[in-house]
Computed example of a mutant assay.
Amino acid sequence: MSNVHPAQRVAVLVDAQNFYHTTQSVYSRNIDYRELLEEAVDGRQLTRAIAYVIRADSPKEESFFEALAEIGFETKIKDLKTHADGSKTADWDVGMILDAVTLAPHIDTAVICTGDGDFSRLCSHLRHEGVRVEGMAFGESTSEDMVDAVDSFTDLSERVDRFLL
């Protein structure tokens, strides 16, 4: 990546649900969060690494949350909600956006790990505030709006052997 230097303070924000659905539907594999974090930090000073996850009461999720913590991620957990009509929702968009805006004065670079185009406006705002914004996601499930809104984009699909387990 260009414009990278060791003194940069970096925050890494990962939309784990977005990555889970992409890696399962496209590759039937799981993401290697250790490799993802290493690539995102890229030798710089890690300020915060946050993985936004959903608790859906599935068998291995607690061990997954623990593994994220061991790697160095702070996990923010939201319970899956079931509505009266039977539909289920769980969304971290607002939480990620608030965290990114709150962190902006304390970082030089935000690495936003999602393909969700809803975050393109956040990226534009952070750049306006003087924060370098890097995006990391799988190209086949990434909105063009997201790619266009960041300073640099890493397509994880180009190196699946590194980023998938």
Results as ranks from 00 to 15, higher is better:
residue 9 R to A: 09
residue 70 E to K: 11
residue 112 I to R: 02
residue 119 F to T: 03
residue 33 Y to S: 02
residue 39 E to A: 15
residue 139 G to Q: 11
residue 100 A to H: 00
residue 107 I to P: 09
residue 61 E to S: 03
residue 107 I to D: 02
residue 148 D to Y: 11
residue 107 I to H: 04
residue 164 L to A: 04
residue 138 F to R: 02
residue 39 E to S: 14
residue 54 I to W: 01
residue 78 K to L: 13
residue 106 H to E: 12
residue 150 V to Q: 02
residue 41 V to E: 05
residue 72 G to I: 04
residue 149 A to M: 08
residue 163 F to G: 05
residue 122 L to Y: 08
residue 119 F to Y: 11
residue 52 Y to G: 00
residue 76 K to I: 06
residue 55 R to H: 04
residue 28 S to R: 11
residue 106 H to D: 12
residue 100 A to Q: 04
residue 93 D to E: 14
residue 108 D to M: 06
residue 50 I to V: 15
residue 146 M to K: 01
residue 96 M to L: 15
residue 69 A to T: 15
residue 76 K to R: 15
residue 12 V to H: 05
residue 157 S to L: 03
residue 38 E to L: 09
residue 15 D to N: 09
residue 128 H to S: 15
residue 106 H to Q: 13
residue 122 L to V: 08
residue 74 E to V: 15
residue 10 V to D: 02
residue 122 L to D: 03
residue 139 G to A: 12
residue 21 H to C: 00
residue 147 V to D: 05
residue 153 F to G: 02
residue 72 G to K: 06
residue 28 S to Y: 05
residue 19 F to V: 08
residue 21 H to R: 10
residue 66 E to Q: 15
residue 141 S to W: 05
residue 30 N to H: 14
residue 162 R to I: 15
residue 109 T to C: 06
residue 64 F to C: 01
residue 37 L to N: 13
residue 120 S to N: 07
residue 73 F to Y: 13
residue 62 E to S: 01
residue 11 A to D: 01
residue 116 D to H: 06
residue 47 T to E: 11
residue 108 D to H: 14
residue 56 A to S: 14
residue 14 V to D: 07
residue 154 T to V: 12
residue 7 A to G: 10
residue 23 T to Y: 07
residue 78 K to W: 07
residue 57 D to V: 03
residue 93 D to P: 15
residue 16 A to C: 15
residue 33 Y to I: 00
residue 92 W to A: 15
residue 135 G to M: 08
residue 123 C to S: 09
residue 85 D to A: 00
residue 42 D to F: 13
residue 52 Y to M: 04
residue 56 A to R: 11
residue 91 D to Y: 07
residue 8 Q to F: 00
residue 9 R to I: 06
residue 151 D to N: 15
residue 134 E to H: 13
residue 79 D to G: 01
residue 96 M to G: 04
residue 46 L to R: 09
residue 136 M to T: 05
residue 141 S to H: 14
residue 82 T to W: 08
residue 7 A to P: 01
residue 164 L to T: 05
residue 23 T to M: 05
residue 103 L to K: 01
residue 120 S to K: 05
residue 26 V to C: 11
residue 65 F to P: 02
residue 68 L to T: 00
residue 28 S to N: 13
residue 134 E to I: 10
residue 148 D to T: 12
residue 91 D to H: 08
residue 102 T to I: 09
residue 93 D to I: 14
residue 116 D to W: 09
residue 20 Y to Q: 00
residue 4 V to A: 12
residue 18 N to F: 11
residue 91 D to Q: 07
residue 165 L to H: 12
residue 128 H to Q: 14
residue 133 V to C: 10
residue 8 Q to W: 00
residue 42 D to G: 09
residue 154 T to A: 01
residue 78 K to P: 07
residue 45 Q to P: 02
residue 12 V to D: 02
residue 132 R to I: 12
residue 24 Q to W: 13
residue 164 L to E: 01
residue 97 I to N: 14
residue 91 D to M: 09
residue 116 D to F: 11
residue 89 T to M: 04
residue 76 K to M: 04
residue 112 I to C: 09
residue 114 T to F: 08
residue 43 G to W: 10
residue 146 M to T: 07
residue 80 L to M: 15
residue 59 P to C: 04
residue 61 E to W: 02
residue 23 T to N: 07
residue 85 D to S: 05
residue 133 V to A: 01
residue 51 A to Y: 00
residue 15 D to S: 11
residue 147 V to P: 07
residue 160 V to F: 07
residue 113 C to P: 06
residue 113 C to G: 05
